[in-house]
């Protein structure tokens, strides 16, 4: 197949289309996902192609959407639901935490829930309040959930296909600010395995560990660092739960220094978990304490102030500079 240049939004749309073609038990529903095609157009054309029964609008109620998906998954379907924005997904929190996450466990594996909750998340698009949260840590903290977030167009396609085929519920976090990023991709390529990280760039001096919207920023920082004579490895987690300790720790052991880059606030977060695990598992390989570049522990700021909240190339390079190079 020839490579085509498409956006992440188009790749996600194609993944849904291909999954619905491959398996007629796959259904897509949520708010404005029908005629409108979703506020980000991720479901564009699906109702027209597959009909009202396969892709449909629901009443405006997130707990009802996720709860109905639980029942449909119990009864032989593979529902994919869309929470319109990160912070609009919170009404569904009880359904996600008490039912989606626990159903397999509480029934000793007899009831499985093959369902996907898609959540556009993160800032960087000038959204007004309640439109830019990074909510992945709430879900990653919850046993029973698998939390996935793509950082490239190819991963957006491959990970969503894998998530829909996955036997367990997946919270699929889509970085909003990357929706319009375009890449040349070959959608027939092998799809990434859920739960496995990938090394995006190899470098011997330090490791940047990032996921979702922070990955392109980390890669840009590595590019600048290389020009300045410092070679950085960049690990893209792809899945924040479960964490791929093996890939992360192998990179940290190879380089001896690490910075975790995440767009979410740092306190009690995925980034703090990574630091804890790296410190526990790689302590003797470390030449410096693991640093973090995260958002401040404040509510996501208004659009005119959001640039101060988001990880930047400069902040990453400053953190790398702080990794006690003089001692080595």
């Amino acid at each position: 197949m020839t490579h085509t240049k498409i956006s992440m939004a188009q790749a996600l749309n194609q993944a849904l289309r291909d999954a619905m073609t491959a398996d007629e038990s796959v259904v897509m529903f949520g708010e404005d996902v029908g005629a409108l095609g979703g506020v980000f157009r991720i479901t564009d054309g699906l109702t027209a192609e597959f009909g009202e029964q396969r892709c449909f609008d629901t009443p405006l109620a997130e707990a009802g959407i996720v709860g109905m998906a639980v029942g449909m998954a119990m009864n032989g379907m593979r529902p994919v639901v869309e929470m319109q924005f990160d912070a609009f997904g919170y009404p569904a929190f009880e359904q996600v935490v008490s039912h989606v996450a626990k159903m397999r466990n509480r029934t000793r594996g007899r009831v499985q829930l093959p369902m996907v909750i898609r959540i556009p998340y993160g800032g960087g698009i000038g959204g007004v309040e309640h439109h830019s949260d990074s909510s992945e840590s709430y879900f990653a903290h919850t046993p029973g959930l698998t939390v996935v977030t793509p950082a490239t167009v190819a991963d957006a396609y491959g990970l969503l296909r894998k998530a829909i085929e996955f036997p367990d519920p997946v919270v699929f976090m889509e970085p909003k600010k990357l929706y319009w990023a375009k890449e040349e991709v070959d959608l027939t390529e092998a799809q990434p395995e859920i739960g496995k990280a990938v090394v995006r760039r190899d470098g011997a001096d330090a490791t940047l560990i990032a996921y979702g919207p922070a990955v392109p920023v980390a890669l840009e920082a590595a590019e600048v660092a290389a020009a300045e004579g410092r070679q950085l490895t960049v690990v893209d987690l792809r899945s924040v739960a479960p964490l791929d300790d093996e890939t992360v720790c192998a990179a940290v052991r190879r380089t001896g220094r690490a910075v975790v880059v995440a767009e979410a606030s740092g306190f009690a977060s995925v980034s703090s978990e990574i630091v804890a695990r790296v410190t526990e598992k790689c302590f003797h390989s470390l030449a410096a304490p693991v640093r973090r570049v995260t958002a401040f522990d404040i509510p996501f700021p208004p659009p005119k102030l959001e640039k101060y909240q988001l990880p930047s190339v400069d902040r990453i390079l400053d953190a790398v500079d702080d990794l006690q190079w003089e001692d080595s």
């Binding site: 109905m68 009864n75 379907m77 039912h99």
Partner: peptide, 27 residues
């Protein structure tokens, strides 16, 4: 086994089972 007699797990949180019932019926 909820499938053996088509009985969902008992819900301890209140009313959370009702959207599931709708989902099973809709499917």
């Amino acid at each position: 086994d909820p499938y053996e007699h088509k009985v969902a797990p008992q819900a301890t949180p209140l009313a959370t089972q009702l959207p599931h019932a709708v989902g099973v019926a809709h499917a």
